[in-house]
Amino acid sequence: MDSLRYTKSDEGANFTYEKFCATCKLLFNMNNIEKDEWRLREIFDLFDLDKDGVLKERELKMFSDWTQKIKKSKYALVIVDVQNDFIDGSLSLRTCEGKQDGVDVVGPINHLVQNGCFDKIIYSLDWHPEDHISFYENLHLRELHPDSKVKKKDAKPFDTVIFADPYLEQILWPKHCVMNTWGAKLHEDLVIAPDSVQIRKGQNPNMEAYSVFFDNNFKGSMELQEILKKHGVDRVFVCGLAYDICVKSTCLDGLRLGYAIAIVDDCCRGVTAPDTEATKKLIYENGGLITNSNDVLAMVNEGKQSLVLAHKIAKSMTSIDTCEKPENILNNIS
């Protein structure tokens, strides 16, 4: 890899797409390249600023910086909401439509925590006040907007309503993860890594917070971004509960912010099978990687490279860095 570093003597070289591809074969598994060769073309085009088919001077320097960034990437593992209420409590996934068992993620997540060389491990927890807007049991505390198709007298758990103040659409969940209760605690069998961080989300009584990055209005805590920035993290592996709710929102927000995001498929469980499959498709279409725990360990421990993640890093390097502002995310939701 050190041979890929840019030097002044490279400035006159005709670094064509063919040479670019030959170099990338040193970085990526051939199966990766054959399946996703279009990503190589797009990466090359991102660096080829004058579109003349050759990387030179500043363009070649950008390519070299990309290869070095890939080599020296920092990794974070974000473990989302592996809490008692989602496993054995009031919102147990076993009782939801998909009939998946949340406890199934504990073993493979522990394997990652105990064997992966991550630069930072972060656990998130739903951490709601008693009067939280998402609780079906609190429906009587707030008025619904006339736009709400489901009326208060007809509402049931898991229905979607529209509140008047604040004006927002909300799924009515059974009361769950109330702060400082057994249901809000991380599962007792989940390994807590030394020097890890725990982020508590959803503390605003009038706003849901599915994503670990932001509340659902893209405001609130910037804690996760600050942690990732402090540790120089550019690749984030996400796992936990529930696949099609909080894991999904965390991944999509991370992608919008410019991080290379991978969802660890065997370390997640969801509410419904169709929504879980739709989540995978949406994450992939937005530039994320769908992977498994064995491949994650190969990446963080052995330096195995993912073309999907490298593609995202190239796009982040060559874009105008304004996406960290929440208002910009609101204006660019896909």
Rank of each mutant, 00 (worst) to 15 (best):
D321W: 09
D126Q: 02
K304R: 14
V106C: 04
F218V: 10
L186V: 14
K151W: 04
L190H: 02
M179V: 05
L241W: 01
M317W: 07
I192A: 01
S293E: 04
V113C: 00
I121L: 02
I109A: 09
K185C: 15
C323K: 06
A184C: 11
N29P: 03
W173S: 00
Y6H: 07
I290R: 05
V212I: 15
S148P: 01
L257Y: 00
S319T: 11
T23F: 13
G303A: 08
R5P: 00
D36L: 13
L144K: 10
L55G: 00
P194H: 03
V103I: 15
M207F: 08
R41A: 11
V78Y: 06
L26Y: 04
L297Q: 02
S319L: 07
L252C: 00
V271G: 01
K175F: 12
N331Y: 07
Q305W: 09
V178H: 01
L49F: 08
A164V: 09
S148H: 10
C21R: 12
N292Y: 12
E137R: 00
W127H: 10
Q225E: 12
A273P: 03
E327N: 02
I121T: 03
H231N: 15
G183R: 05
M317K: 05
H231A: 12
Y259M: 06
D159E: 15
G107A: 14
L91A: 12
C239M: 05
L60C: 07
K312T: 14
L168F: 06
S249W: 04
S316N: 10
G288D: 07
W38D: 14
T7Q: 06
W66Y: 15
V161F: 03
V264Q: 08
D88C: 12
L309T: 05
G98H: 05
N115W: 08
S293P: 00
L224M: 03
L27I: 15
D104T: 13
C24Q: 09
K99L: 09
I79N: 04
V54H: 06
I33E: 05
I133K: 05
K156S: 01
A278T: 13
N216L: 09
S73Q: 06
R5K: 11
V212T: 15
D321Y: 13
E18C: 10
E277N: 15
G270Q: 09
I79G: 02
N328R: 05
E302F: 14
I199G: 13
K325M: 08
K61H: 13
V178M: 04
K19W: 13
C117M: 10
A298D: 15
